[in-house]
Design a protein around this nucleic acid. Sequence first.
RNA 1: GGUCCCAUCGUCCAGUGGCCUAGGACACAGCCCUUUCAAGGCUGUGACACGGGUUCGAAUCCCGUUGGGACCGCCA
Length: 459
Amino acid sequence: MHTQCTVPNPQAEGRHRGGTEMADTVRVRFAPSPTGALHIGGGHTALFNWLWARHTGGKFILRIEDTDRERSTKEYEDTIMSGMQWLGLDWDEGPDTGGPFGPYRQSERLSTYREAAERLLEEGKAYRDGEAVIFKVPQGVTLAFDDMVYGHIEMQSDTLKDVVMIKSDGMPTYNYAVVIDDHTMGITHVIRGEDHISNTPKQLLIYDALGWEYPTFAHLPMILGKDKKKLSKRHGATSVYEYRDMGYMPDSVFNFLALLGWSPGENNEIFSRDEAVGLFDLARVIKKPSVFDMDKLNYINQEHLKRLPPYERLALVEPFWREMGLPVDSHSREYLAQSLVVLCGRGQTAKETAGYSDYFLTFEPVKARYDGSEIGDEQRAVLKRFNGELLALPEWKAPVMEEFTREWSTANNVKMKDIAMPLRLGITGMKVSPGVFEVAEQLGRDEVRKRLAYYNFVE
RNA sequence: GGUCCCAUCGUCCAGUGGCCUAGGACACAGCCCUUUCAAGGCUGUGACACGGGUUCGAAUCCCGUUGGGACCGCCA
């Protein structure tokens, strides 16, 4: 057990939860503003909150911070939610599911913000300027908190400017609303990006003014692009959807994101959601910002892809085949799934896998890629003899074909690759493929005969 | 500029004073396997930013320097 961890693990300590001990239960929230899709940074923050809630048996709350009237839209709210669902981050309370601490949209909690603001106004801790309500920062106060990741942090109030609580349009500002909501929603752990560390002292001031206790803070290291700058569109995909569209599995993106700023501590980098939940610990989160590394994502995705049962892999690849205009429906599910088994882990994404396997679905792309013109008369004659005998084999099985080919190449003093390569090219149109006999078996004797005949590689 | 934060291979992590001539993974290079590629196996290149302390002993603790980042909005 990690003694730094201030929150007891209910499983490990065998404590009972619920009922009157409700107050002990971990409550964390992800609070995006609906001004854009769920991007990698937001996904990372949501993920760590979710992990902590699930690990501790607590609650994961989704709160929509839609106080920017100009930029917030319902569409973005929906995309963020479906992005989270895609990643498998389910929430216990939120704008759609409801819950005992609702409403879960800031735009619907305006009265709560006003009440607290009135109180502060009456007590002389805030003042009006124009239509806005502004918090008066007291001088000479030391603001301090103990961050679960960054440790003890303190700052003098003198360096702070007064903070706007309610904007002229009646909407609360972030630094104010976040305090009111986290407190009234019973949030126990505020887990958010490191870029919020400098905001925290302002929020502390408001907790103090209202006489509220601080939640536990845990700031997460930033995710940077290859150039070590804050991740942005310039670094490629930004929304988690773009990863889905590129053929990445949600489990892989989950796994990859979990590894940014955290590790289970053992030499275990590929894990499932459930394993991550069991292993996760906020006390093991590191402080150093991490660079988003596409190569690592690719590797992780390939590992997850390899571990997938055939039909699940088929479900992932199928949309990309369709996108490529391949005749998916003219084949049986068994045939398609088996084709991917033959492909055996080739391709780092479902999209790549689809691109490597088009020849299983139709001959057309093969013809487009390969014309057989580099084969001279002499070699063609050899191929015709060999292919003729191959197609006449009593059993159309890869091991049988392979054995036959070895014997034939020795007997005829022909190099294995001189007959295997044209065969591969003729049936796949590629110089790279799985074992050519496995491909031939999967395609079937008739289809192979048809393709070879097209190139005049067989009599 | 002010305040705050960070600093181990190119990248992601391990390391919480002795087990470290610093470990794993990705990437890269080579070899093996082989009908091609992928996968797999083996090997290699490669880091504690720098300078001072503290200590019998420091990647680990302290101070400074340098370098990076964040925040300083009636955005969140």
